[in-house]
Nucleic acid binder design. Structure first.
Lengths: 137, 137
DNA sequence: TTATATTGCGCAATGA
DNA sequence: CTCATTGCGCAATATA
């Protein structure tokens, strides 16, 4: 993991907010076949803001912050999800262990019952020697 | 793997789904105002490639593909993680249900034992719960 | 060294 | 309208 030092080289945007808009970019197909050129300027305040505009920069900055925030949130959520996986895994193991224990206890009791039943059918009266004592938690 | 159309869309006005009219923007870099790219021109094989270079574009395109691939992978992983969470949740419920069942069974058996013990101490020989079952004679 | 994989970031379209 | 999400490209960096 690493953090970019201070490279603020964003995607070819130009000028700082304060310098005259002098985009060093020029369309290669001025009037060729492409007429899908965006609303360009000199349109009313429809939508596209000029790249050097004050409002434009303000909007961009806000959006950039929103983007950052959103991505941070997304990452945190992902991390939480992974944490939950581990948590659930642990609980899973715990539950399985408990099941194992209960199953064993049940088995023991059933065996006792069976033994008793056999004794009955054999007409035998076993002396209650040492009864299995167990404690429940 | 998705193959993006080899559009040389820079980071400026692009991403117009439906409007393939990509105004090919090219950096005007005559050597006058470019300050964001100090690749120490004139150097031989420096590290920075020129923006109009063939190799540059090739490199960029490859990287773009790699980026797409990586992000796709990341998303898939996140999805898998969420799926795992749900899966584990279900299994946990299942296990808890089983524990509940086993606990109940155990409780019943223990009650039976207790009853039996009481009967013994009362010197009684119960015949279970089946009233009206007497041997006539 | 080169090639690919990750990551942070900005832009723009779109969703809410 | 504003803010949140999302896809995408760029560049720095990490990994092979």
């Amino acid at each position: 993991m690493n953090q970019s030092p201070s490279s603020a080289s964003e995607g070819l945007s130009d000028a700082l907010p304060g310098s005259p808009a002098t985009p060093q970019l020029v369309p290669l197909n001025p009037g060729g076949g492409g007429k899908a050129t965006p609303p360009s300027k000199n349109s009313k305040k429809s939508q596209r803001l000029e790249r050097g505009s004050e409002e434009y920069r303000q909007r961009r900055e806000r959006n950039n912050m929103a983007v950052k925030k959103s991505r941070l949130k997304s990452k945190q959520k992902a991390q939480d999800t992974m944490q939950r996986v581990n948590q659930l895994k642990e609980e899973n193991e715990r539950l399985e262990a408990k099941i194992k224990l209960l199953t064993k206890e049940l088995s023991v009791l059933k065996d006792l019952f069976l033994e008793h039943a056999h004794n009955l059918s054999d007409n035998v009266q076993p002396e209650s020697s040492t009864p299995g004592q167990e404690s429940a938690g």
